[in-house]
Design a protein around this nucleic acid. Structure first.
Lengths: 233, 233
DNA sequence: CAGATTATTATGTATGCACATAAAAACATC
DNA sequence: GATGTTTTTATGTGCATACATAATAATCTG
C-alpha cells in the first residue's frame, strides 16, 4: 500500500477536492481532523490547515472549532463578479468606447436618495447623468449622486471627458459599499436615450459606497437590452 | 514615539488598510517589503505575509515576487454573490416556501441546449419546469435540462416534492460551472405563470454546471418582478 | 435533575527557521 | 551593444512548536 505524500497545500487541497467529488466524503459528513490528515498525507498540520481553510473560504467546507470540519451540506455557490470600470469593460472586448455627459447639476436630491445616503434632506448633492457607448451604440446609462462634502474635488470636475464612474475610483477612496443587481423596465425617457423599445428589460446595477460613516456616492447604471454579467464558479 | 505593536494578522491588515485609505500609500505606490513591515509592526514576517496575502486576494494589493507589493491602481471591485438554494433563500427571510412541479419529461432538447451542453443533438435529456413560491406567490420559474447519462439517479426521481434545484446539489457533484446574470422580458407564458404583466423585466440567472468534461445540468431561473440580488463590497 | 463549572478537543494563529521560486538587476561574453 | 548567464532579492511556502479560543462534553453542585 503506497500512500503518496502530499508536500504542498495545493496538492492536499486537490486531494480533498477529489475525495469530495468522488463522494468518499459526502455533503454533511465530518472529515478527519487536521492532525490525522497531516499524518495520513505526510505533511505538517499547518499545511493541511492552509488547504482546508482555502476550501472553507470558497464555501465547500464548514469548519467550527472543536466541532470539526464537514463537507458543506449545501455548498453555497459563490459567484465572484469583477465589477470593472465601464470603459475597461468595453475596451477589453476590443470595442470602441465613447462617453457623453448629459447633465451635471447641484441640487437637493429626492428624499429616497438623501435617506439612503444618510445626508440631510435639504443638503444639495452633485447629480450626474451620462451615457456610455460601445462602438457608438448606447451601452449603459449612468445616474449618479455625489456627496461633495466628502469629495469636494468633484465640484471642480466637469465630467465632460472623464466619466464619474472612472474619476471617482481614482479620487474617492471608499471603505465599504453595497451593490444591488436587478432587472428594471425601461422608462419612456430611458428608452429614448438607450435607443430601445419602451419597457425593455434592462439589467441594472445600483451601487452605494461609503468612506467610514459618510456616503460617497450612489449610482444606478442601466445596461442596454441583452446585457449579461457572467462568471465562472 | 510609541510604535504600537501589531500582534495578529488582522490588526496588521487593518493598519495597512488604514494607510491605504488615508492615502499614505497611494494607488500604484510600492509599499515596504514584508521584512521591513514585520520589523516596524513588531511581529513575524509570516504574520505580515498573511495580512498582505489576504488583501491581495481581495484585489486591493498587487504582489509579485521580487518586484514587491503595490497598492492596486484600479481596485477591481469584487462582488461576491452567494447563490443559495431557492428554498433557503426564501426561508431565511422568514417566508413560507412552496414548490410546484409543472412539467417533467425526457425529450430531445433544442440544438442550442445540446450545443451548450456538448451532448449529441439527438440524445434525449430530462427536462424539468417548476415554480418556486414564497408565501404562495410566484417567486421564481425554473427551466432545466438534466444530463441523465451523468446523473442516472435523476431518472428515478419524480421531483414532485423536492425541486431539481435542491436535489441536484445533493446528488450531482460538479467540478466547475458558469453563471450568467441578465434581464429578460416576460413572455406571454411566463407572465401567466408568474402572475405579472407581459414584458415585465425579470431578473434571470442562467447556470451551466460540469463534472469534469461532461455537462451535468443547464438551468434558467426567472425571478419575479422586483427581485434583487445584493451584496456588500 | 436543572443549572453552573470545569475539562477536553479541534481549529486558529503567532513565531523562527529553512528553503523554493520568480523576476529584476548586475555581470559577462561574443 | 545585443545576448546569454549569474547574482540578488522579495515573495511563497513548509515545518515544528507553542499557545489562544470556541464549543462541546463531562463533571460537579444545589
Amino acid at each position: 500500500m503506497n500512500t503518496p505524500t502530499f508536500r504542498n497545500w495545493q496538492s492536499v487541497q486537490s486531494e480533498v477536492l477529489r475525495r469530495i467529488h468522488a463522494r468518499e466524503w459526502k455533503p454533511g459528513d465530518f472529515i478527519p481532523n487536521e492532525t490525522d490528515l497531516a499524518l495520513e498525507f505526510g505533511c505538517a498540520r499547518t499545511t493541511v490547515n492552509r488547504a482546508l481553510r482555502a476550501l472553507a473560504d470558497s464555501g465547500l467546507l464548514d469548519r467550527r472549532r472543536k466541532a470539526g470540519t464537514r463537507v458543506a451540506a449545501q455548498p453555497v455557490a459563490k459567484a465572484i463578479l469583477d465589477i470593472a470600470v465601464i470603459r475597461s469593460e468595453i475596451e477589453e472586448r476590443g470595442q470602441n468606447y465613447s462617453y457623453r455627459l448629459m447633465a451635471r447639476q447641484t441640487t437637493v436630491p429626492p428624499v429616497t436618495v438623501s435617506a439612503a445616503m444618510h445626508t440631510n434632506a435639504d443638503d444639495p448633492l452633485l447629480s450626474i447623468r451620462a451615457l456610455h457607448m460601445s462602438d457608438d451604440a448606447p451601452y449603459a446609462l449612468e445616474d449618479r449622486w455625489i456627496n461633495t462634502s466628502v469629495v469636494p474635488a468633484a465640484k471642480d470636475e466637469t465630467f465632460q471627458d472623464v466619466s464619474a464612474n472612472e474619476w471617482l475610483l481614482k479620487h474617492a477612496p471608499y471603505t465599504h459599499g453595497e451593490i444591488v443587481f436587478s432587472a428594471t423596465a425601461a422608462s419612456e425617457e430611458d428608452s429614448a436615450i438607450m435607443d430601445c423599445p419602451e419597457h425593455s428589460a434592462l439589467f441594472t446595477i445600483d451601487r452605494l459606497t461609503w468612506d467610514q460613516g459618510a456616503a460617497v456616492t450612489k449610482a444606478r447604471i442601466l445596461f442596454g437590452p441583452g446585457h449579461q454579467l457572467r462568471t465562472a464558479l
